[in-house]
Amino acid sequence: PQVPQCKALYAYDAQDTDELSFNANDIIDIIKEDPSGWWTGRLRGKQGLFPNNYVTKI
């Protein structure tokens, strides 16, 4: 099955070790969508939390 993905609308710099940094237009694999607004994703071999208001699902 296809892994859900999202595209970064803005760059995000991780504020903690469990967060994921990314650049605008990066494509992130979505591991888990949480109602809190912090999703778990994977990018370039690293997994971490990121704010879903920085991305749009594709």
Rank of each mutant, 00 (worst) to 15 (best):
T17G: 13
K7E: 07
K32W: 08
F50L: 09
L9F: 02
P1K: 15
Q47D: 05
P35G: 14
N23G: 13
K32F: 05
Q2L: 11
S36A: 11
L43A: 11
Q5C: 07
Y12Q: 01
E33D: 07
N23F: 12
F50C: 00
S21T: 13
P51S: 07
N25K: 08
F22E: 01
Q2C: 09
P35D: 14
Y54M: 10
A8R: 01
T40S: 12
D16E: 11
L9D: 04
A11V: 07
Y12P: 00
L49G: 10
I27T: 07
N52L: 13
D26S: 04
T40Y: 12
D29R: 05
E19M: 13
F50G: 01
Q5I: 12
Q15R: 13
D13N: 12
D34I: 00
I27E: 05
P35S: 14
G48K: 02
G41F: 02
W39V: 05
I27G: 01
P35Y: 07
T56R: 11
N53L: 09
P1A: 15
Y10A: 09
G41K: 00
K7G: 00
G45M: 10
P1D: 10
D16L: 07
I28L: 15
L20D: 01
D26P: 00
E33K: 05
G45N: 15
P35I: 10
Q2K: 12
Q5R: 15
G45V: 02
A8W: 00
Q15V: 09
Q47R: 11
N23C: 13
I31W: 04
S21R: 03
A11L: 06
Y10H: 10
P51G: 02
N53F: 15
P51N: 13
N52M: 08
K32G: 11
A11I: 03
P51M: 04
S36E: 07
A24Q: 10
W39I: 09
R42D: 07
D26R: 00
Y54H: 15
K32Y: 11
D29M: 08
T17M: 13
F50I: 15
K32D: 08
A11T: 08
S36N: 05
Q47S: 10
W39G: 04
D26G: 00
Q15T: 13
Y10F: 10
S21W: 04
D18G: 13
Y12I: 00
K32R: 13
L20T: 00
P1H: 15
L49A: 08
Y12E: 05
L49V: 14
N23Y: 10
Q47H: 10
L20I: 13
F50P: 01
D34W: 12
Q15S: 07
S36V: 08
A11N: 15
Q5L: 10
D29L: 06
P51H: 07
L49H: 06
I27P: 03
A24V: 13
G41P: 02
N53P: 04
